[in-house]
Design a protein around this nucleic acid. Sequence first.
RNA 1: GCCGGAGUGGCGAAAUCGGUAUACGCACCAGACUCAAAAUCUGGCGAGGUCACACUCAUGUCGGUUCGAGUCCGACCUCCGGCACCA
Length: 856
Amino acid sequence: MDEKYFPEKIEQKWQARWVETGAFEVERDDARQPFYCLEMLPYPSGFLHMGHVRNYSIGDALAWHKRLQGFNVLHPIGWDSFGQPAEQAAIKRGVNPREWTEENIAHMRGQLKRIGVSYDWRREIAAHRPDYYKWDQWFFLKMYERGLTYKRKSAVNWCPQEQTVLSNEQSSGGVCWRCGAAVVKREIEQWFVRITAYAEELLDGMKELEAGWPERVLTMQRNWINRSEGAFVDFAVKDTDETVRIFTTRIDTIYGATAIVVATEHPLVEKAVLKDDVAQFVERVRAARQSRPPVPGEDEEKEGINTGLLAVNPFNGEQIPIWVANYVLMEYGTGAVMSVPAHDERDFEFAQKYSLPVRRVIERISHEQERIDHDREAGLDQSVAMPHAFTDYGILVNSGEWGGKLSAEAIALMAAHAQANNFGEAAVTYRLRDWGISRQRFWGAPIPMIYCEGCGIVPVPETDLPVVLPEDVKLTGTGESPLAGVAEFVNTTCPKCQGAARRETDTMDTFVDSSWYFFRYCDPQNEAAPFDTEKIKYWTPVNQYIGGIDHAVMHLLYTRFWTKMMRDIGLVSFNEPVERLMTQGMVTNQVEGTTEWKRMSKSLGNGVDPDDMIEAYGADAVRLFILFAAPPENELRWQETGIEGAVRFLRRVWGMVWRWSERLSGAAEGQSAAQPESAMGALEFSDAARALRRKTHQTIARITDDFAELHFNTSVAALMELSNAFADFGAQPATASGADVFVVREALEALVIMLAPFAPHVAEEMWENLGHAEGLLNQAARWPEANAELARREELEIPVQVNGKLRSRIRATPDTPEEELRAAALADEKVRGMTEGRHIVKVIVVPQRLVNVVVK
RNA sequence: GCCGGAGUGGCGAAAUCGGUAUACGCACCAGACUCAAAAUCUGGCGAGGUCACACUCAUGUCGGUUCGAGUCCGACCUCCGGCACCA
């Protein structure tokens, strides 16, 4: 050990030592309790950014802590290595996407190793390697067998920038999740995964997650699935055999329906012989959608046209016109709605524009409010500029036999009535759509399907997997599937009839790869199955998952679905893949010349290269700062003075260990902090020594608790407090008594072991220099245990309040009886000054905490 | 519009169950060491007030509950995030 702290030297030393000793390599061991600590796997863009460093620092701290507590900790890493950037690099610069990806992985692996994250590197996986994506294809076939994948032509989200299809989740808000380009609609044939079959369960399963997942993630998923209870009602189309099925959550308002409005893509519009003006309208709306995607937060001006068709309301036989309009969505419900202008804002707006009748069928229950409501609608209420629909529940009027019933009751009864008479039923709809996974890209897992003229769609037999991506494909970025131009790939024989056939040329969405990757870590070399179910049983579900909030809906919804699907094909026995989820905050930096803090990025010029920081301050200091500067879920503002503070702290602790190293190494024989009190003989502890022991044990208790909640920032603060207390303890190595040495060892060992999750390299070095040359901290050390007796304070300062305001303090011990505290407080000079001549109403004594004297 | 989260020093933030508000760090100020600077060490650091105490006021705002409220309840303001013509 040098007198001075040289991060680079010791970081290299310990990184090498960890590799030599296989320190972080783990195997299933039924005698030990497992802990699965997982961080979201990175896309190999080529460079690690600070967000990654934060992610892995959080995960590594927990992995170290659990390991020191004796758990068998699985802590793996891999690469989400299929996807757009590799393909873009290929298109723009003509590089080979596989080589480009492999080079990036090699570079980033080096960076991760320099940070010193404690991964079991033997378990590394990469999505682009055939031994991995073979199992993507295998899962696809399993789902196909069970009807969970299917092909269909439909309007899909198309990113014009990337020239590919996106799933609904990936085009949330009308923009591409990756490049931010406005998404347009396109009619395309593609493969879907039937995630909607699990909609109810995905919603329901969140009950299981409430304890371990952040509220906001659950909320986002709930919003996304958006369950809606209502009813289907069939309206006959007059003079035809057709019916129009509508979905409504307000069947109680059906007597107020004055039109049926359908989407421009509705089958009725496709089938009917339309008048010229109607056909033109439909054409115009569709063309507009192609060129001008919807702007989030802004509704398009409602437009529609009467088709001339009439629908018959099955409840009252009334004939109402069928309109086509731009505000009805084909993707939700049935693509057709009943228009009830009196009780729906959108219908009201539409009716105003086209002078459709407004018929009130719900009245407010309270008369007082009804008057106000009438005023509004009549335009008499001056504070309301525009009349409104009345959208609340109430009491039914003008509704035939249902009149007088309350909305809630009517909704149930009317749906039952519809069902009994065969023109509808109660129904639940979701906003969640099936997951479109076809991508018109090269750099992804080929969809293992074959098209035969005679046999139709034929799955690739399991034994023929993987369907391997060809090398040397010219990529042009024209929006055609690149594989379609590779004759050797496309042309094949039909597995059924052996005749000439063609392969599917689309590849899978990369979110398929990441839906199950953490199961593969448990058994990464398995050639016979995606994984061994016994190994899975030992390691999974994941105990703690850490990653960015940006995947709250996409990845985290898909992987929940995937787990349920795997359960149903008998691979796992649980419902949810992740017990606890932590969503880390962004790492931001000030944008030069402004006061704004924004996510680090190249384009803003506010990026910070982790390699530069490690070179300047060492990996330990960078990690320590990241975990100390803010709670993990908060935004982290990058401040170089903050890292300097972290280095200062590490240097101070280093100095303490260095000064005591010789004395403690000598005394190491037969003297360990872990030894029971009885082995210490008749050591006499000074007041100062007892105070340091107290602080040591208080700190152990506090940090152990903090780890359970991942409160790393307060853990680091507690370590700093302990080191401050150590500095205040005046003992000198040359003159210290046996008792002092014992207390010093106890404090320094606790400090060093508990520092290891945050700054592992320097912790290992200091551990060695505390006289533990025989074993590595990560293997030989155990997380210290707090002794409550030693942590107990001997002397207390009890605040004394008069009428709730702090006026004085009295000295006491933890077991001073209440009566005595009361007496001491009342006898206190200050208190007497304030109570003299006044009536003491009562005295509240909270043992060990405070005394409050209430006077009048 | 609907849903969720958050407002505490100059800054990042602490405060476990309703019980000493501002731990820990950054920045800043003063002192020591130095020819000097850096580094390091020591001390100070919510606002008002005072020579110094005392005292008064402070956890977004206004109320409430309580002996006692950053914490619980009600109303509001602001900011951040998600969804958005979802019938």
